[in-house]
Structures are given as C-alpha cells and as structure tokens.
Design a protein around this nucleic acid. Structure first.
Lengths: 275, 275
DNA sequence: TACGGAGTTTCGGAATACGAAACCTTATTC
DNA sequence: GAATAAGGTTTCGTATTCCGAAACTCCGTA
C-alpha cells in the first residue's frame, strides 16, 4: 500500500541518514550558548514538532551524550560528549607537540599563551595557559573566534592561499574595536606585513586593552594549520617587548612545525598566499 | 504490502532511534585509541556490514563531526567534534569557577595541578596546568582514569554514598603498581582516612614515582562532583611538603564549592558515605 | 595482466521514524 | 485552593527511511 507508485526516487545514491543528521543538529545546537535548551526551544530552532524533538534528545540521552537537568528540565551536553569530543585533541599531533612548549613559554613570559587551529575559516582555540591574574582575557577551550581580528587567526591567514583570503574578505568583516581591520585591502595588507616580519600582531583589534603576537605552525604539506600566541594587557605587552615575545612564539612554532614533518627548504614549494 | 500483519509491536513507547544510536556508536568508537579507524575495522568492531558502516561515517562526515584522512582513508573525529564536545566545559560551573584557581596553585606550587570530575564511576580529566619539565606525568584533557588509584578519584570517592563505593568494589580493582589499593576493604579504609585528614593521597598507586594530593569539590546538593589535585615526582612532593600542598588544594576546592552554592553547615544533611 | 584488499554504490524488502494530537505534570494566577 | 496555562511526554497510523547482501570500482602488488 505505501509507496504506491512513489513519484520520487528513493534518492540517487548513498545519501546520509537524514534522521540521524537531524538528531546531530540537536547535538550541535547544544554546543552554542546558552548551552542549555528546553524541548520547546529545540523544536522551534530546528523546525520540528515537539514529539520529534523529544525522540531525538532521548536518543542522544540514550547514547549518553546529553543530560537533562532534573530541576530545570533543560537539556545539555554531558561529560561523555566532552570525553568524545576531546578525542580530537588527544589524537592531534599539533596539540601533543605544542603543549609542553606552551607551558614553557607561559612561565617564561608571564603572559597568556594560547594554541589555536584553523577550522572552517575560523580560529578554534585548543588550549590556553594563563598566569594568575590574567584569567579575564582568556578564550575558552573549544571556542571559535574570528581570524581577521586575532593574532592567532592572522598568523594562519597570512600563509593561507590567496583564494581563501579573498573568499573570507568578500564582504567587510565584523568590527570589534576601533582598531579592527575590516576591509579586504586592509586584511591583505596585514597579511603582507605579517609575512614580512614573521609574526602576526593583534593590537587591540579584538578586545580593548589586549595585545597579542602569534606565529603559525605548518604541517608536513606546508599548510598553516595552527598557531601559537602570547597575549597580555597593553601595559604588559609594550612595543619594546613585542619583539622578544614574538621570538618566543616563533621559536616554539617552528619547533612544532618541524615535529610535524615540515621542512622549510622543501623542493620548489610555492610561497603561500602569493600577492 | 509492507507491515502485512507484523507480528511484533513497533515497540511499546518512545524508543530511541535505533539507527541513530548505532551511528553514535561509531562516533564513540572513534573517541578511544587508536582514534583512527578504517571502514572495515569499524564494521568489525560494531558488527555491521561494510555498507552500513560506510553510510554511518558518511552521515557523521556530513554533519561535520568526522573527517577522513585523504591519504590513509582512515576516519577520525574532526575539529567540529572537539568544538561541540567542549561545550560541556564552557557550560560547566565547576570548570569556570575552578580554572583561575588552578592557575594560581600551579604557579604557587610549581607542580602539576589538575581538575577532574566524577563521571560514571570514573575520573574525567577536565584540565591540567603543568609547569615546564613535568609534562610527562600529565593526564590528557578528556581522558578517563580509575577512581581507586588516583588522588582525584579517591577524593571524590570518599564522599560518595556507601552504595556507590560498594558497587565499585564488588570485585578487586585493577592494580597498576605494587602500592595500588585493590580490595574493597582497603578502598573503604582509604576513604575513611581521606575524610579524616580532609584530603586524598595517591602515593605511587597509579604511576611509579608520582605522588598526588587532592581535595573534593561539592555542588549545592552536597555531592562530590569534582576535585582538584597537585601532582609531582616523589622527590618534589615529599612527606614534609604534602601537608602544605594539601592545604592549597583544600582551600581552592572549598572556594569552588562555595561558588557552586555549597554550604557546609546546611540543615541536617547526612554525612556522605557513612560507615 | 591477473590478483587481492579495501572502499563505495546499488537495490528490494521491511522495519523505522515522522507528524499530529492527545495526555500528563508542574508552575502560576485569581 | 481551583482553574489555567505552559511545557514535557506518549500514542498511533502511514509512508518514508534504513538494513543487508552483493555487485562494482579503485588502487597497489605479484
């Protein structure tokens, strides 16, 4: 009786499982603030009836990835989701190679040291080391930040392909402070400067009063996949000390690149992001 | 035509989506070492034919949670999975409250400082701060460790319910070093000692040459949901200095508990894990 | 050039998920 | 304290989606 002369093909070929995809949308919806959602809210955001939303959170709960607050009834990601997601870190050659160096630089500089990776045109924070007293200017593990206004992002962007930069700057990027560079021309110019001096600088372009320097990490294919930064209040990271801090991150980033199999003098590799 | 007199009920009530559950099993399989699996291996582990395994990794890939290494063809968790999973951390009151304190203690003590949470009878590492040179004795973010042989685990276990302890110690726990306490009686005795002195000690019970002290964090309901520890080589964490290190973690853990709304002198709360 | 191993796609049949609506539970209002 | 409202949970029939088996393709090897 069903499918009586169904007009539509069951789909051309190996389509992903649609019901599972919708369920994973629920999962990902819980990964953004406010991190805790009611059933009704989930249904509203993802355009599904309450019953379906309920089935999906129950499925995620059955898999252990989602918890429900007994008091508020709100759904949120569980510790198991954290365990599973962080497998990426534990498996990441960049992270494993960089972590010890981050600690060293943090103690040497007394400032915030961060490791970020390139992910879908944004900067993904992998970890930060923060000396006491500077906790307020720290990005959280796993947070995504813009690449045009952070030192970590700019360090990677400067060594990405020209097409990637152009795609990013098709329209002006968001402004966060008066110093944020938002235009395509400005961002391209910044990339040029970054390559010229060998490190990227964020001079209060993301957060007022915070300055950062960063240097990119290259994988064995020469792609800028990550970066290391030192951040601090403008009073601590003055123009006089920027150079030596930059030297710290450059040295560390180079070491990590080497461990990843990057060889700077490789055979005729085209310099990235040619202008 | 289908369902022509189907003998089996479609299931009593809101069952979770079975196909999605199997797909999430694939996701979780990638969260354990070796972290990268081939299609055939996934199929073998989860008892599914290749075609099904393929549909599932394609679905996870379509959701962005899984990547395939272009060279090796192996599947692994993606940065997006990391972003999603770490939402648990960003949303965690314990983590937010404890992180600044961890940094302080790490700088004060010069040793490794860790934060762990109770999760399904095991210890889940949320983060660690490691001074230079001690990187080798650090547990990774998101790793799960046993509760009977780690200071973090023992600190929480000592304040859990008697039933929970008994359930855990039904059979002897795994031994990792000659000093590991594996019997039910020994673990119970340890819990008693921990409560008596106010902090837990791991004296080379997990890793030879490494000693740790830890103190539990209580939520507003009085449950020991997390703990803070200081770890170091036995030469650095000597008997003479254990007391003062323990004082550091106790003070920090108490502060975090307070921030979570825990009130030690609450109305007639039954002391946990009564003997 | 044949072979082997692994990944990918196809296909029909049958079990599974969807949506709508009813039901239940908890908090709020008068 | 009863009525109400808002949200969470369950039921049910239909038709859509998923499962398994097997064929196909790709790539490196003998």
């Amino acid at each position: 009786m069903p499918s009586a002369a169904n007009a539509k093909r069951q789909s051309s070929s190996s389509e992903p499982m649609s019901s599972t995809l919708r369920c994973l949308q629920v999962f990902q919806a819980l990964a953004d603030p406010p991190y805790e959602l009611s059933l009704t809210e989930i249904g509203a955001r993802l355009r599904m009836v309450k019953g379906s939303a309920h089935r999906m959170v129950r499925t995620l709960a059955a898999a252990g990835l989602v918890d429900q607050d007994p008091r508020t009834k709100l759904y949120r990601l569980s510790p198991k989701a954290f365990w599973a997601g962080t497998a990426y870190l534990r498996n990441s050659p960049v992270y494993r190679a960089a972590l010890p160096l981050l600690q060293s630089i943090a103690y040497e500089s007394g400032l915030v040291v961060s490791l970020g990776a390139w992910h879908e045109r944004s900067l993904l924070y992998l970890n930060s080391i923060t000396p006491p007293g500077l906790a307020h200017l720290v990005a959280e593990i796993g947070e995504r930040w813009p690449v045009h206004s952070t030192a970590l992002g700019k360090a990677m962007l400067a060594y990405r392909s020209r097409q990637e930069i152009d795609a990013l700057t098709e329209v002006d990027r968001p402004r966060y402070t008066p110093k944020t560079i938002v235009s395509a021309a400005g961002i391209l110019q910044e990339a040029r400067k970054t390559r010229a001096r060998g490190y990227a600088v964020d001079d209060e372009e993301m957060i007022q009063g915070v300055r950062c320097v960063a240097s990119p990490i290259f994988d064995s294919e020469g792609a800028a996949v990550a970066a290391i930064s030192i951040s601090g209040p403008v009073l601590a990271l003055t123009n006089e000390t920027v150079e030596e801090r930059a030297a710290l991150v450059r040295e560390a980033a180079t070491k990590v690149s080497m461990q990843l199999g990057y060889r700077p003098a490789a055979r005729g590799r085209t310099p990235p992001a040619a202008l």
